[in-house]
Design a protein around this nucleic acid. Sequence first.
DNA 1: GCTCAAGTTTACGTTAACGTAAACGTCAAA
DNA 2: TTTGACGTTTACGTTAACGTAAACTTGAGC
Lengths: 133, 133
Amino acid sequence: MERTYSISDLAREFGVTPRTIRHYEDEGLLSPARDGQRRIYSARDRTRLALVLRGKRLGFSLAEAKEIIDLYAAPQGEAGQLRTMIGKLDEKRAVLEDKRRDLETSIANMDRYAERCRERLAELEADAREAAD
Amino acid sequence: MERTYSISDLAREFGVTPRTIRHYEDEGLLSPARDGQRRIYSARDRTRLALVLRGKRLGFSLAEAKEIIDLYAAPQGEAGQLRTMIGKLDEKRAVLEDKRRDLETSIANMDRYAERCRERLAELEADAREAAD
DNA sequence: GCTCAAGTTTACGTTAACGTAAACGTCAAA
DNA sequence: TTTGACGTTTACGTTAACGTAAACTTGAGC
């Protein structure tokens, strides 16, 4: 018996609205089980939701997030399927790597700039101490 | 005499349309000089555009990109201004750092998964060779 | 003087990603 | 048994980030 979640359980946990989660289902990103009308989310559903939201934070559209996430769920039966999957994984990995480079330049630039600010502030404070004497 | 750029120069270089660049101006992200009606972009304008586009690739909205970029252009006259600027820089840096963590987990997970795919493929190919004997 | 490529403004259109409201079902607690 | 709290579907509304079209100007080349 695995643990399950209601839609508002997940909404609370991830800081989104139930509407958002239903929207992801409309877009084919989630397909929870049902108890009558009610949606029942499994641990796998929860993981998929987490992946979607992480994708969004990294600047992917829902469609792009779906492409990536569906790779993890695809059947890996025969060798041909495995080879195309590995190819697609390499593509997506390259995109992520590009973003990482962008991100690292951004952080490095920001750090350099912040450092210059701190130096300038230190000078100003030294001047202020001199003037106080 | 610094080099300048027309709107379509920049559009070509960065793979966007002139409309996009004008839109960024409407949103206060760029403010090129003018020769009559015509927009003239300086090297600084070009850099700002590059920063905007990088921000977008990393999942920031235009408003968020503006917040960050404006920090770099803000006056750093007195000590108080410098201190608030350093504070804001630290905030933004934390956001970037979060994204980096997200990104690195994503890449690591993808690598692990791809590795499992490669192993599985190797097994299948070994089986195929055995069967051929 | 004409043409044409590239620029301009103005304004309405479009798409993604939800928000919001209405109208309804359901079930446990008071 | 009625009242919430939570769920559902349906459908129209909204915002960001441009696309697209129209109508106009302007400078370079023929």
